[in-house]
């Protein structure tokens, strides 16, 4: 859309500005019941509003009249739940400008700001009404959500004597909803939570790279020949820093286990069986046990590794029962 057409739009809608629309009348006078409902729902325990004795002793307000919280200002002359304004309200279209912008292709709307000014408290028995005026439309602006116009509405909240008790300036952004790129009609998948990636530093990288290469690698001291896992840079038997790796066959027995039920941490399936496996080569390794019913897991059961690509960047040595009779059918 060119700037000239933006100028055309402004020329069309500016005459609609500064038209004071109203009154919007209230259905009911200010009442103790509605004040109580609002305070109760909002958790506002200020004694000024509903505590008659407090008011008598600590305020200039009448003891026998409940005082309305200022933030209730727009509630008194609000439409009812069926969308009907109070008796005697105007039928003029307050949203003429917004409708006109919508016709021009600016269908999106977002509330931007809501500035409020309070002039006096309402008391039980007061009767409110309000007027509304569009007081500003900006030039065409470009924002992160699209191009559009900032529209500011003034709401004047009046009492039964037509005196202003509160006012609000409400700014909306009326914008062109950007066209979706071709093929993006489906809602995008929610962000998938992945398994936490291990630290692959000097001491540990070979282990994780080995898994991606299809091998479960165990560190072996080049001097004394001791095997070790998890990896560490120095041999705890002979203090050698020289090491290489051997490939494990991935067979072993369960030394101990747990079945995790709670909390359920994404992206894992629950219950989540975790095993500490004594590998045949003589080292222990922690992993998940897949496919065995929790009640069938036993200390000492034979298990075998199956290297599994659990997500795009991660291959893990998951274990299964070696005896297929204890394995659940998928």
């Amino acid at each position: 859309m060119s700037d000239s057409s933006a100028a055309d739009i402004l020329n069309k809608i500016k005459p609609l500005m500064h038209k004071r629309v109203g009154p919007y009348n209230s259905w009911n006078p200010v009442s103790r019941t509605q004040i109580w409902q609002w305070c109760s729902a909002m958790g506002d325990h200020n004694p000024l509003y509903l505590d008659d004795q407090y008011r008598a002793e600590h305020s200039e307000f009448a003891a026998d009249k409940a005082v309305a919280p200022p933030a209730m200002m727009q509630m008194w002359s609000m439409r009812d739940v069926n969308g009907h304004d109070g008796p005697g309200s105007t039928t003029d279209n307050l949203f003429e400008i917004l409708d006109a912008l919508e016709q021009e292709g600016y269908a999106g709307i977002m509330a931007v700001s809501y500035d409020q000014t309070f002039h006096r408290y309402l008391e039980e028995g007061d009767r409110a009404h309000h007027y509304s005026t569009i007081i500003n439309v900006s030039d065409l602006k470009t924002t992160g959500i699209g191009k559009g116009f900032f529209v500011t509405q003034l709401a004047e909240f009046m009492d039964q004597n037509d005196e202003l008790f509160a006012e609000a300036r409400i700014t909306y952004f009326k914008y062109q909803v950007p066209k979706k790129p071709a093929g993006a009609s489906k809602p995008s998948a929610p962000g998938k939570i992945n398994r936490i990636h291990p630290v692959e530093n000097h001491d540990h990288a070979h282990f994780w790279q080995g898994l991606r290469d299809g091998k479960l690698l165990i560190q072996k001291c080049d001097d004394c020949g001791e095997l070790r896992h998890p990896p560490q840079p120095m041999c705890e038997h002979c203090q050698s820093l020289r090491w290489s790796t051997i490939e494990s066959k991935g067979k072993g027995t369960v030394y101990t286990y747990t079945v995790m039920h709670y909390p359920e941490i994404p992206p894992f399936d629950y219950p989540n069986a975790i095993v500490l496996v004594d590998l045949e080569e003589g080292v222990r390794i922690v992993s998940q046990l897949i496919g065995t019913k929790p009640d069938d897991i036993k200390v000492g059961m034979s298990v075998e590794m199956k290297l599994t690509e659990v997500q795009e960047d991660m291959t893990l040595p998951l274990f299964h029962a070696a005896d297929p009779s204890t394995t659940e059918k998928p």
């Binding site: 398994r195 936490i196 990636h197 291990p198 630290v199 530093n201 001491d203 540990h204 998890p230 995790m260 909390p263 941490i265 894992f268 989540n272 975790i274 390794i285 922690v286 992993s287 998940q288 659990v310 991660m314 893990l316």
Partner: peptide, 15 residues
């Protein structure tokens, strides 16, 4: 901590 827990967190063994 994370270096230590790297051999457990990928399996969900993290409480």
């Amino acid at each position: 901590n994370i270096i230590n827990f790297s051999h457990y967190f990928p399996y969900g063994f993290m409480t």
